[in-house]
Simulated scan of single mutants.
Amino acid sequence: MIQNILLQLFLAALALAAPLTDGGDATLHTMGKDMIGYGTGGGIVGLIVLVLDVLVFIEVLKSNRPPSHKLLWCLIVFLFPILGMLIYFLFSNREAHKTSGAYEPLP
Results as ranks from 00 to 15, higher is better:
residue 1 M to T: 00
residue 1 M to F: 07
residue 2 I to Y: 10
residue 3 Q to N: 14
residue 3 Q to C: 11
residue 3 Q to Y: 15
residue 5 I to A: 14
residue 6 L to Q: 14
residue 7 L to K: 12
residue 7 L to D: 14
residue 8 Q to R: 14
residue 9 L to P: 14
residue 9 L to K: 12
residue 10 F to R: 13
residue 10 F to P: 10
residue 11 L to M: 15
residue 12 A to R: 10
residue 12 A to M: 11
residue 12 A to P: 05
residue 13 A to K: 08
residue 14 L to A: 05
residue 15 A to G: 09
residue 16 L to C: 08
residue 16 L to I: 06
residue 16 L to W: 07
residue 16 L to M: 09
residue 19 P to Y: 03
residue 20 L to P: 03
residue 21 T to K: 01
residue 22 D to W: 02
residue 23 G to K: 00
residue 27 T to M: 02
residue 30 T to N: 04
residue 31 M to F: 07
residue 33 K to W: 10
residue 34 D to C: 07
residue 34 D to F: 10
residue 35 M to R: 13
residue 38 Y to I: 06
residue 38 Y to G: 09
residue 39 G to M: 08
residue 39 G to R: 09
residue 40 T to H: 04
residue 40 T to Y: 05
residue 40 T to N: 04
residue 41 G to M: 03
residue 41 G to L: 02
residue 42 G to V: 03
residue 42 G to K: 07
residue 43 G to D: 14
residue 45 V to Y: 13
residue 45 V to W: 13
residue 47 L to Q: 09
residue 47 L to F: 15
residue 48 I to G: 01
residue 50 L to S: 11
residue 51 V to E: 06
residue 52 L to C: 05
residue 52 L to V: 11
residue 53 D to M: 14
residue 53 D to F: 12
residue 54 V to Y: 09
residue 54 V to F: 07
residue 55 L to M: 06
residue 55 L to S: 04
residue 56 V to F: 00
residue 56 V to D: 02
residue 57 F to P: 02
residue 57 F to E: 06
residue 60 V to E: 03
residue 60 V to I: 07
residue 60 V to W: 00
residue 61 L to F: 05
residue 62 K to Q: 03
residue 63 S to Q: 01
residue 64 N to R: 10
residue 64 N to C: 08
residue 64 N to D: 11
residue 65 R to N: 00
residue 66 P to Q: 14
residue 66 P to Y: 12
residue 67 P to C: 07
residue 67 P to H: 08
residue 67 P to T: 10
residue 67 P to K: 10
residue 70 K to C: 02
residue 70 K to R: 06
residue 70 K to F: 00
residue 71 L to Y: 05
residue 72 L to W: 04
residue 73 W to M: 01
residue 73 W to G: 01
residue 73 W to Q: 01
residue 74 C to I: 04
residue 74 C to K: 03
residue 74 C to R: 00
residue 76 I to P: 01
residue 77 V to N: 03
residue 78 F to S: 05
residue 80 F to R: 01
residue 80 F to A: 06
residue 81 P to T: 13
residue 82 I to C: 12
residue 82 I to K: 06
residue 83 L to I: 15
residue 85 M to L: 14
residue 85 M to W: 10
residue 88 Y to K: 07
residue 88 Y to N: 03
residue 88 Y to S: 04
residue 89 F to N: 11
residue 89 F to C: 09
residue 90 L to T: 13
residue 91 F to D: 12
residue 92 S to D: 05
residue 92 S to E: 04
residue 92 S to V: 01
residue 94 R to N: 06
residue 95 E to I: 09
residue 97 H to E: 12
residue 97 H to Q: 15
residue 97 H to R: 11
residue 98 K to Y: 05
residue 99 T to S: 07
residue 99 T to D: 04
residue 99 T to N: 06
residue 101 G to V: 01
residue 102 A to K: 14
residue 102 A to G: 06
residue 103 Y to A: 13
